[in-house]
């Protein structure tokens, strides 16, 4: 059961060190947050989509287009009502608040697209190793890695339980909210018990293999910075610096907005 977005391809982005990809992800977030004018935020989105195409990940965006649309609409509607401006458009919506809502909708979608690129081009094992190399304690990174591996197994168990209970006549679609909520009990209890029962076995297996017995560890997977990483980081830093200079020079703002 493959639930993850990772696409096994051999692109320039796939070959980058996972730490480089984490830094590019953070830089994408920062660039998206610097501006509040829709034109400038859309320009950042354009750059991110170019990066997405380089990573061969555009196909994954099709899977989440509805999510991007609904989050964008929520943001547009919310900020149009909550932010304030000076040029009335309709009801309490002003041209400035609408522009800000639109910019924020693009901002959120830009960040999600950047996240999708990262997940489409980075294996779970690489994410874990990058976290360890970036200073996250091994036990915490291991728990994260173990959880990532177990999600498909548990999701499969949960699906099996749902199908088994449905075949016995459990109807999740009828009744009011309270009745429908209570129907989740026979689904959740077996999943939880199954999970909890495996704790001792897993802990013993880990300790049997020397988990936590030594501080220093070696890893089967090796990562390291190459020329491509330095090139990608240099381009990203230059773009980030340019965006910062533009922001400080007053570009990318919406005049008359009080948000």
């Amino acid at each position: 059961m493959n639930l993850y977005l990772y696409l096994d391809r051999d692109t320039f982005v796939h070959r980058l060190d996972p730490r480089t990809k984490i830094l590019l992800l953070l830089a994408s977030f920062a660039m998206a947050l610097l501006f509040s004018h829709p034109f400038y935020v859309a320009s950042v989105l354009g750059l991110i989509l170019l990066y997405c195409a380089l990573g061969g990940s555009l196909g994954n965006l099709r899977k989440i287009w509805f999510l991007l649309l609904t989050i964008g609409l929520l943001s547009l509607a919310g900020w149009s009502l909550f932010a304030r401006g000076q040029t009335p458009l309709f009801w309490r919506v002003t041209w400035e608040s609408f522009s800000y809502g639109l910019a924020t909708a693009i901002k959120i979608d830009t960040m999600i697209v950047a996240g999708v690129i990262f997940l489409s081009t980075t294996k779970n094992e690489e994410v874990t190793l990058a976290l360890i190399r970036l200073g996250i304690p091994y036990s915490a990174a291991f728990a994260f890695s173990m959880a990532l591996r177990l999600v498909p197994t548990f999701a499969g168990t949960a699906s099996t339980v749902v199908e088994a209970q449905r075949s016995r006549g459990l109807d999740l679609e009828s009744g009011n909210v309270l009745e429908r909520a209570k129907k989740y009990i026979p689904l959740l209890a077996p999943v939880f018990l199954n999970t909890i029962r495996s704790t001792d076995q897993l802990a013993m297996a880990l300790e049997g293999k020397g988990f936590g017995s030594r501080r220093g560890r070696t890893f089967y997977l090796e990562i390291g910075f190459k020329k491509g990483d330095f090139l990608a980081l240099a381009i990203t830093l230059a773009l980030l610096a340019l965006a910062l200079v533009m922001r400080m020079a007053g570009f990318g703002r919406i005049p008359g907005l009080s948000a």
Partner: peptide
């Protein structure tokens, strides 16, 4: 994080939390 059982419980909690989000979508 010094206790293996607690590390396992943290991982299991994380996995089950993420896992039941998918097939038991409300």
């Amino acid at each position: 994080w010094r206790y293996t059982k607690m590390v396992v419980l943290a991982a299991l909690t994380a996995a089950v939390y993420a896992a039941i989000l998918i097939p038991l979508k409300g």
